[in-house]
Design a protein around this nucleic acid. Structure first.
Lengths: 246, 246
DNA sequence: TCAAAAGTGTTGGCGCTACACCCATGG
DNA sequence: CCATGGGTGTAGCGCCAACACTTTTGA
């Protein structure tokens, strides 16, 4: 095993990708053999961390190695360290031996990140050959390694929660966007339809979503007005609220 | 160093104690010497975890060793693993050497817990000699080891947040309590006064805070009606809401 | 009878929900 | 001129904040 790695601490990445229609998650295909039977299953991308890197640096490294992306929103989740998390399933254990992973206990710190699969800037997204996107609703039926179902479920719950309370949606939008695009993100991630008029009313009351003097072009219907998210205004407002609220 | 401990993973405990007037936190006194100067400072209680214990088991072990208490509300916070968290301050480093701690990198998983210092059942609380309670507002002025100020601040923020959204307050109350007692907890932890009439109205609308046919006795003012928290009703309601809300 | 805390209702504003029709554009 | 999505307003309800006086007890 690589001596530069801390043998007991890993980072796992839950990389959510939004493709304008579905919410997806990136998984790594894995072949393993146990008692002479061959299995194919999936795991979250992850790695042991190095002695000389921070936790979030490790998480960014994994994301970059896997997708070529940098500067992506990323958030630490709770740490998973159950005693038997690597050994519950015998084939996981034999896989670890096969890849020369130390057979010691490993606790893992998951991070989730959020990327837009249809943004122009992400068209040059490069995936390693064994990586694949899955609609999050389909993952329940897949065999996943270790406690990765549990981790993924926690990540999804957290993502849905944070979407309601933090300006996460804008991570998934181009700089200029229409209110319909914004609404669609909320509907897909939360998983429920929203009333258009009420949604727009609410948005219009938010000073940090600023209307532009621009419209969509060459769409075969009435072109939508474009908006942008002002992180400055948002931060200022948040600070004021935080200071003045009980 | 004890071979039963994982050298790179520790648990720290933020133990909040409520004494009916203040919110306090338990810290451990520490003597260290650096360049022949002697320092006294404070740290959060914590320890490396053992190979054969879960993270939350470790956290419970620390709490029990320190206070004799079990079955206390406890919640995992985010993991702190900055590269230089042990070495920022030279005297921390020399202290580690002095206590024969491995000088390797350690990431720590903090847990906070919440106990009531005036409950009868906790009167037999036993503290180790170097442990001491501090009003949380006073800790800013204390010298703390490592990144413990940062961890404590994060814990406090989380506690205040969770108090608003989870039935945490009841961890601090006897089974039967008055609405004034309940209100006081909110006021002290959140750190702001609340309107009595509005507070009571809100509580009366919560079906899981059930009025009893009992009053306070031998108080030299009008005795208050007593209430209890029904965790059953709360859980049922929470499940329904979660299922039915968008 | 006093001190100390318990207990109690109303009003105005604000935000949420539900709901249906016209508008601008490209093909 | 048609198909497609963009854009708009109102009414009812519930929640929240602000606010002051009476009641019950022990000393």
């Amino acid at each position: 095993m690589d001596k530069q790695l801390i043998p007991n601490v890993s980072v796992d990445s839950i990389i959510f990708g939004f493709d304008s229609v579905y919410l997806n998650v990136l998984l790594i295909g894995r072949d393993c053999v146990y008692k002479e039977i061959q299995y194919h299953d999936w795991k979250l991308p992850g790695d042991l961390i190095r002695w000389d890197e921070n936790l979030d640096t490790a998480s960014k490294r994994i994301l970059k190695d896997l997708t070529g992306l940098r500067n992506i929103y990323m958030k630490q989740l709770k740490t998973f360290g159950a005693l038997d998390r690597l050994t519950r399933r015998p084939r996981d254990m034999s896989w670890l031996i096969a890849i020369d992973h130390p057979e010691e206990r490993v606790i893992t710190i998951p991070y989730y990140s959020l990327i837009n699969l249809s943004k122009d800037t992400d068209k040059n997204l490069i995936l390693t050959s064994n990586a694949q996107w899955f609609n999050v609703d389909d993952v329940y039926d897949l065999p996943l390694a270790f406690d990765h179902h549990e981790i993924l479920e926690f990540a999804l719950k957290t993502l849905r929660n944070e979407l309601r309370t933090k300006p996460l949606a804008f991570e998934l939008l181009p700089i200029k966007f229409s209110l319909s695009q914004l609404q669609k993100i909320y509907e897909i991630i939360i998983g429920a339809p929203l009333d258009r008029r009420n949604f727009r009313k609410k948005i219009h009351n938010l000073s940090y979503i600023v209307p532009l003097n621009e419209k969509e072009v060459s769409v075969s219907h009435r072109p939508a007005k474009l908006y942008m998210f002002s992180r400055d205004i948002y931060q200022r407002l948040k600070k004021e609220k935080f200071d003045f609220t009980i």
